[in-house]
Write a protein that binds this DNA or RNA. Sequence first.
DNA 1: AAGACGTGGTA
DNA 2: TTACCAAGTCT
Length: 346
Amino acid sequence: MCRDLLDWYDVHARQLPWRVPPAARRAGVRPDPYRVWLSEVMLQQTTVPAVKGYFRRFTETWPTVEALAAAEDGAVMEAWAGLGYYARARNLLKCARAVVAEHGGRFPETAEGLRELPGIGPYTSAAIAAIAYDAPATVVDGNVERVMARLHDVHTPLPAAKGELTALAAALTPEARPGDYAQAVMDLGATICTPRRPACGICPWRTPCAARAAGTAPELPAKAPKAVKPVRLGHAYVARRADGAWLLERRPDKGLLGGMLGWPGSDWSAAPAPAPPLAADWRTVGEARHTFTHFHLRLAVEVAELPEGAVPARGSFVPVADFRPAALPTVMRKVFDIARSALLPD
DNA sequence: AAGACGTGGTA
DNA sequence: TTACCAAGTCT
């Protein structure tokens, strides 16, 4: 059965910037563990199209784990801006520095060893072990869960079904070509066994698939109902100094948008108290709306123009020449777009 | 162990 | 517009 999938993968493998194609892989070409690790971290809860540009820029700027380990924190956070889940970027640096300082610049070659590193959990450790080192590790991500739930017609809702689906995936992992196998199941889930409208008719596993036989494939895997997202409110303060500099603030390392640059603001709650970074003639010019994983946010955008000598209680001024909106997380970029059209009308 | 943690694309 | 979805990890 694994053979059917590997045969399919030999023909239909997606070509991705971090991947060694199956033909080259069988000819002995090994992927660079650094690139495998970087791509797998970027791909956590993130789509392939979103990752491609970031992967290219990261590998151009920092071609090796040594180069990344030597990078400045701010430069890495800026390069990650817009990709989301910023703890990944903080852990990426911690991990690179640990690999250089504690492992001589080489990634551990076993899933257990990899699992010890920051930002590398059960999925990523197995993925690197399998893909970079061809170890027979069982990779279980959202694709594998979906494929296994359908293949075995498992109706238990996630996340309760996680253990059962992991066991089913482990029982199927072959000794031969485990790296290609891991990528093949994920490709199958991404291109054939998709969440909606799976293409069962052209699936290499259409014959053994229990859900296909039962007609239940499109509704699997079952999932526990999601909690309703509350709405939180807040104020964001965008100040422009007379020389064009913007008042920005580095957010604390822990918590939401940790380590990222942002506009000074109130806390985000049901009834936020205004908290401008300095006394000024603030005007409300609009509202930025943004949805995070667990709440909706509405930010009142306040703007002010400041004299050259203004001294803020929080944050620091970034000269126009150094300011790049792309270095901000998306919610802060939305705030800027609203503030800019008020302060700098075309 | 349940909740925190982003974003952009799609229906 | 809203809701769901995508190669998870950490606490």
